[in-house]
Structure formats: C-alpha cells, structure tokens
C-alpha cells in the first residue's frame, strides 16, 4: 500500500521545466528520501504534493485518493525556508497554525500541551517568538508541522541550521513518529543523513527521476564486489588469482571479485593458509558516490 503515488507528473514555469515526467511511490509507513542536487526540482515536487501548486500533467494520489483541497490537513510540511511571526506569542502562534490545519480549539490546546511537556518547554506559552533562539524556534517549527498528526510528513532539509543536540532530538522524534506509522518524506542533499534514516529513496536530477528504490537494493545494484579484509600474517602470493587487489596496506587489503565469484572461497583459502582474519567486509558504495555518479552521468548525456 502506498501513501503517495506520483504518475508522470510534469510542471513547467515559463520556459523552464521544473518537473519532467516524474513517477514514484512512497510506501505507507516508510521513511522516504527525496534526493537531488540544488535546483533539481525537489521543492517544485513538494509544492505539488502539498497542493501549493498543481501539476500541469500527471496525477498525484494521497492514500489512494486524487489530491484535493482537503488533503493539506493530512499533510505536515516543514519547508526548508521556514519562519514564524516574530511578534506572536509561542502558544498563540501554535494555536493559530493548528487551527488552520483543521484542529478544534480544545484539541489544539491539548496537542500543544502534550508537545510542550514532551520538549520540557511548558513555560514558553507566553514568550514571544522573537525572544527565542534559532534552535528554540526550530523546535516550535517542528511542533507546528506535526501538531495535527499528519498521515504524511514532508521535511525539507529538516536539520539545516540545527545544532547536534537539537538534530538528535528531532531525529528521535522522527523515529518515534515512524514507529507510530507516520509516512515521512525526507528531502535533502545530505547523503549521510539519508543513509542513516531512509528506507526508500528517489533521486531527482534536472526535473527527472533517475533512480528509485530501496536503499539496500540500490546499494547492491551499484556494488562493485569490493571486499576489505583486515588480517594478521603473510598473505599468500596466489591471492591475485582469486581477485584483483585494489589496495594493500600492512594489515588490510581491498579486493575486487570477478562477477559470480564466491567470497567464501577466498575467506576459506586465507583461513587455510593460517592467516588471522579480524574483519571481512563487503564495501558497498555510499549513496553519496551513487548520487554523484548518477548525476554526472546524466549531466554528461546532455
């Protein structure tokens, strides 16, 4: 079951094509990475999903339903460029945003109290937004995004401008929401965060979908059969007949196996020779590498 389905979505501004025939599915309950370099069309896509703009061509389905004007209440969106009304009191501000998301006054108050307790900021209600530090404001932003318990949460560069402590705090909250079944779209160009958090990704470049799938599958697809072995002892000379040596240090070696070769065979051979193996790892390509390779490949084609 998919929480979000995009079918051949297209969007053009004047002469510039921002989104060019993009299709992908976001499985329900997953953490989904929407990746792409700056200007790839991520924000344009998000604006279509959040009903801020409409696709010129193609369809978007939220939870099986064609996107309509009632859907914003089921989506929580934290834009990359985010702000608050500086002169408003924190409590009033959250009440306002929560009610705009369709919450009743009572329900909104309940939820705010819950989050204030959770973040241990119960005395913030009457503070003005401008009195808060940037990190504190980010917390308020986050609360505003999730206060209506959205089915789908869209976070655009959620950690930009956050210190490590707040980053962890928000990460934990994202985890918890994920545990509770919220589907999360995570838009970023910071690959290490994606690897850490996301299960599925789609890679967008120049308005086009160039890669999509489970993180594990993609990594497997792009692996080069590289293995790193940490060892003690003298390597046998016939190791070259098993695989190509890519890198060799005193107690570590990187081997590339031929397609179809069995890694167990090498391991067994080395053990037979009396070498002590400390570690035997397959080196999977980082998403960063795949990302750069794919983007460059596509850009070269044009």
């Amino acid at each position: 079951m998919n929480i979000l389905q995009l079918e051949n979505v297209q969007k053009a501004y004047e002469k510039h094509i921002a989104v060019n025939d993009v299709s992908f599915n976001v499985p329900k309950g997953s953490i989904f990475g929407l990746l792409g370099p700056n200007g790839a069309g991520k924000t344009s896509l998000i604006r279509i999903i959040t009903t801020i703009t409409r696709a010129d061509v193609g369809q978007v389905y939220l939870d099986g339903e064609k996107l309509n004007s009632r859907h914003p209440e089921q989506i929580g969106y934290m834009p990359e460029e985010r702000g608050l009304y500086k002169k408003m009191k924190v409590g009033d501000h959250l009440m306002y945003l929560a009610q705009l998301k369709g919450l009743s006054k009572i329900k909104a108050k309940e939820e705010i109290t819950y989050w204030f307790k959770k973040f241990d900021i119960e005395d913030w209600w009457d503070k003005k937004v401008e009195e808060l530090s940037k990190g504190m404001q980010q917390k308020i932003q986050f609360i505003a995004t999730v206060i209506h318990r959205p089915k789908l949460l869209i976070l655009d560069e959620p950690f930009s401008g956050l210190d490590p402590i707040n980053t962890n705090l928000i990460k934990d909250e994202i985890d918890e929401l994920h545990q509770n079944g919220t589907s999360i779209i995570f838009s970023t160009h910071r690959m290490e965060q994606v690897e850490e958090i996301c299960e599925h990704i789609v890679l967008i470049n120049q308005g086009k979908n160039i890669l999509e799938g489970k993180v594990k599958d993609i990594k497997n697809q792009y692996k080069k059969n590289l293995f790193q072995i940490d060892f003690e002892g003298n390597l046998p000379n016939d190791i070259h007949s098993f695989a190509t040596v890519k890198d060799q240090k005193k107690n570590a070696i990187v081997l590339q196996l031929q397609e179809g070769q069995d890694s167990n065979k090498i391991l067994r051979h080395l053990l037979d020779k009396g070498i002590i193996i400390h570690a035997f790892n397959e080196i999977l390509p980082s998403l960063n590498e795949i990302f750069i390779r794919q983007v460059e490949e596509q850009n070269n084609q044009i």
Binding site: I52, I75, M78, P79, R82, G83, Y85, L97
Partner: peptide, 13 residues
Amino acid sequence: TNRIVEVMISSVK
C-alpha cells in the same frame, strides 16, 4: 522575508 508564508500556504490557499 520571514519565510512564514510557505508554512502558511501549506495550510491555506
């Protein structure tokens, strides 16, 4: 300039 507007228009037209 505050960038509140993008938050707002994800809730209202």
